[in-house]
């Protein structure tokens, strides 16, 4: 008994130290692993966000001068005609993007999930390819396609509908045609990406459900409404949300398409383009920050409304 106690007391300190070291590691290791991200996030994420919020209450004049103006930047936004134009343009683009891109992407996804379509892999790649080359390339390409007199789009449209589309029909030089041109270019660019998401969702829907629906006598349309749509709902909501947010962040496509500017009569001016112009062309970073924060809050609000309308919150609670 005495021997055992002695042996035990000899082993105990080193075992205790090891176990304490283990406990310390357990406590500290997660923080250690998270710390690189946290440090980078605080430096390059949180700090700029806070700084921009502070900056939005200043008017900046040049690199070193800032005058505190409180909420006046936000007040000026209310009467700033250019900002209103930018909001309107961005909202119109977002609306048409969602209305056109999502159904088209869904249609393509359904079509390319059918086993009877030959060369599906090739078509999938073809539709996804515009997204791979990027918005700058697409903008440059469409800039050429939309040219009057010699552009391919006018040539084809003039051939098909000569009375409606003269050869010098102006897409990018006429304020009323810029938005359709942008929406078309956006459709070509993003539809493939949405299609891939939806295609993956469709392929993940349990095949047994279709069989059960068929046994119950459901036709193809009924299967789509009762099985496919509910099955892809989470992904569809995700695509809807990202597509809307992406539309509100629109910058590079119109900027390049319209030759580094907002287009005739500001018809291609988006909120982010206005932010960029205010901050980096006119040089008022304070006002640009106010524009940025208004955009962020607007997008947050719209996203919340969309999640509410589509029942995403409800789905989570269930």
């Amino acid at each position: 008994m005495t021997t055992t106690t002695l042996e035990h007391s000899a082993v105990e300190p080193s075992a205790q130290r090891a176990s304490q070291w283990h406990r310390v590691q357990h406590r500290l290791a997660p923080y250690l692993f998270v710390s690189p991200f946290l440090i980078l996030f605080v430096l390059f994420g949180a700090w700029p966000i806070i700084k921009s919020l502070v900056l939005s209450t200043y008017t900046t004049n040049g690199p070193k001068d800032a005058v505190y103006v409180g909420a006046k930047n936000f007040q000026f936004l209310l009467s700033d005609a250019d900002f209103h134009v930018a909001v309107k343009n961005t909202a119109v683009f977002a609306f048409w993007s969602v209305v056109l891109q999502l159904p088209t992407a869904l249609g393509l996804a359904i079509l390319l999930s059918q086993p009877w379509v030959r060369g599906r892999a090739l078509f999938r790649l073809a539709f996804f390819a515009p997204y791979l080359v990027g918005s700058v390339f697409v903008a440059v390409l469409f800039n050429v396609l939309f040219q009057p007199q010699y552009g391919l789009i006018n040539t084809v449209l003039h051939f098909l509908l000569p009375s409606h589309f003269p050869l010098d029909y102006k897409w990018l030089e006429d304020a009323s045609h810029v938005m359709p041109a942008l929406v078309l270019a956006g459709l070509w660019l993003y539809v493939g990406l949405h299609m891939i998401y939806l295609l993956a969702a469709i392929q993940a829907v349990d095949k047994d459900l279709y069989e059960a629906a068929q046994v119950d006598g459901a036709n193809t349309r009924q299967q789509f409404w009762a099985v496919t749509l509910p099955g892809i709902r989470p992904v569809a909501i995700f695509v809807l949300l990202t597509s809307t947010i992406g539309s509100f962040q629109l910058f590079d496509l119109p900027y390049i398409l319209l030759n580094n500017g907002p287009g005739p009569n500001q018809s291609g001016l988006t909120i982010v383009m206005y932010l960029y112009n205010t901050g980096f062309v006119t040089g008022d970073l304070g006002y640009a920050s106010a524009v940025g924060w208004t955009l962020a809050l607007g997008v947050l609000l719209i996203s919340l409304i969309q999640l509410r309308v589509t029942g995403a919150f409800k789905g989570e609670n269930e």
Binding site: N61, G62, P63, D65, V281, T282, G283, D284
Partner: peptide, 15 residues
């Protein structure tokens, strides 16, 4: 077109 944006602010702060 871009130069004048750098002339904003008090003269002593122009870059």
């Amino acid at each position: 077109d871009f130069a004048p944006a750098f002339f904003r602010g008090p003269l002593e702060h122009v870059g």
